[in-house]
């Protein structure tokens, strides 16, 4: 079972909280805050699960997801998307690009943990 999570998010306190929860569950958590270089980080770390925020500085989460799905070596990676805008059109767009799961802020810690576990198992 995979144990590496890459968290792409720019809010330091959200990063800290998610890192804490996942670490206690036994995951190695890598974090990245810049949209521009996020995909390079994906290639570099080769995580088992990616948690991706939509609103990132430099590049939107949707564009990063497109890059991930377009590259054969990362196309099958499970991606959980986080967004503050829980609007249907965002959800539709993410589904269309090929998101694995979608979660709206503010989420609960239990939900995040359950989603990551489920994605890693699939």
């Amino acid at each position: 079972m995979g144990k590496d999570v890459l968290l792409i998010e720019d809010e330091p306190n959200i990063i800290e909280a998610i890192r804490f929860i996942l670490s206690r569950d036994g995951w190695s958590v890598y974090t990245h805050s810049d949209g521009q270089t996020a995909f390079d980080k994906v290639l570099q770390t080769r995580p088992d699960v990616i948690i991706l925020d939509v609103m990132l500085p430099g590049k939107s989460g949707f564009d990063i997801l497109r890059d991930i799905r377009a590259d054969a070596s990362t196309a099958d990676l499970p991606v959980l998307m986080l967004t503050a805008k829980g609007q249907t059109k965002d959800r539709e767009l993410a589904t269309q690009i090929g998101v694995s799961q979608f979660m709206t802020k503010p989420f609960s810690n239990t939900d995040i943990l359950a989603s990551v576990r489920e994605l890693a198992a699939s």
């Binding site: 809010e11 909280a17 989420f107």
Partner: peptide
């Protein structure tokens, strides 16, 4: 503004529940 508020609430909720 709404994005800011939601981000903050998310951080508070996660941290508080920890």
């Amino acid at each position: 503004s709404l994005h800011e508020v939601l981000s903050t609430v998310t951080a508070i909720r996660s941290t508080a529940s920890i």
